Computed example of a mutant assay.
Amino acid sequence: MRISTIQVPTVETPAVRIPTFQDVLAAGERIAPVVRRTPVLRLPGTRVLLKREDLQKSGSFKLRGVTNAFAAAAPSRVVTASSGNHGKAVAMLARAAKVPATVVMTAASAPEKVETIRGLGARVLFVEGGVAERNRLAEALAAEQGATLIPSSDHADVIAGQGTTGLETAAQTTGVEAVYVPVGGGGLLAGMCLAKGAWRAAPAVIGVEPVSAPRYALSLATGRPVTVPPSTSVADGLRGQAPGRVALPVVAAGVDHLTVVEDDEIVRAMALLRTHGIVAEPSSAAAVAAALKADHGRDVVVVLTGGNIARARFEELTGREDRLSREIHSYAALAAA
């Protein structure tokens, strides 16, 4: 894959709008004709219920937020920044709406995700640097082109759309103790916090970050946004460097707990899911890993956020059958404890 990078110009940052529970309800009605109502299925032998967003039309929950943003803005041209899943959802909606789309990515983006986005007709640009530079370039391009910017997470309409995951889960479950959500940009976590109002008895909302990128945990602990060094976590979708300006206050007001997981825990969770025929990308499996090692007396929900991972990469991470057996034995004992 040939990569040419672009220098990032400086642009002014506009004021932000903070979404509400009513925005989530409105998003639920708006996106219902487009998105799939995904099932909630039990991970056999555990208290873990999986909200199967890996079965969403785009292969991830990102389609929810993008659909809501498209419906609200009716764009004639779109620009976004993405590590993969969000860019795929934008490219899908742009192709359906017959509008041009540009997706800005870093040079470290997974090649298979890049090619998928290109295959859907979107233009892909690569940026020098990391997530912060990627996001700034997308903002600059949108301003230059007069295009609609659809951020991957830090946008009121996107967050409201992601929150519809919580609306569905509330209608599909009863007596749930907690909901585990992987945290990248924080849009899904913020949406799930807003969706608490849909439950008769709201479960605890627990955000899960890689141990190498605990942005939200540090930000809430210090009372200010904290930027962390670029992460090399296997969970490529959870490597963002700074919490969102829109998402952070929503998370601060609604999250019950934040926890971290190691890469080896993520890989073990992927291997366990594999034995049940589920292909989960590392970012998705992170929340499964956190739920399995916690001590709960009742059922918990894990948002299985996506399954967009190349087969070769999945095989590389989960390993050969001899290694897989050892990993499964370890996790089976942990899940039964």
Results as ranks from 00 to 15, higher is better:
M1L: 06
P14G: 15
A15V: 13
Q22R: 12
A27E: 10
I31S: 10
A32G: 12
P33I: 11
R52K: 08
Q56F: 04
F61E: 08
L63I: 15
A71N: 12
S76L: 08
S83F: 01
N85H: 06
N85P: 10
G87I: 03
V90M: 03
L93V: 09
A94S: 15
R95I: 02
A96L: 15
V103R: 02
M105K: 02
A107R: 09
A107W: 00
A108M: 00
P111V: 07
L125G: 05
F126S: 02
V131I: 04
V131S: 07
A132Q: 07
E133R: 01
E133S: 06
E133G: 07
R134L: 03
N135R: 14
L137F: 04
Q145F: 13
S152Y: 01
D154H: 06
A160E: 11
T164S: 11
T165D: 03
G175Y: 12
A178N: 09
V179K: 01
P182Q: 06
G185Y: 05
L188P: 03
M192K: 03
C193Q: 10
L194P: 06
K196Q: 15
W199T: 10
A201K: 13
P203T: 03
A204D: 14
I206K: 02
G207L: 11
E209L: 07
P210F: 01
S219P: 10
S219F: 03
L220Q: 10
R224A: 14
P225E: 10
P225G: 11
S231A: 10
Q241I: 01
P243E: 13
G244E: 04
R245A: 15
A247E: 07
L248I: 08
L248E: 06
A252S: 14
A253K: 14
V255P: 09
D264C: 01
E265L: 03
E265R: 03
R268I: 00
A269I: 08
A271N: 07
L273E: 05
A285I: 04
A286R: 02
A286K: 03
L292P: 09
A294C: 02
G297C: 02
R298N: 13
D299N: 15
V300D: 07
V302C: 14
V302P: 11
L304W: 07
G307Y: 03
A312C: 01
F314M: 11
F314R: 02
E316Q: 15
E316P: 01
R320S: 09
D322C: 00
L324R: 14
L324F: 09
L324K: 05
L324C: 02
H329T: 12
H329W: 01
A336G: 04
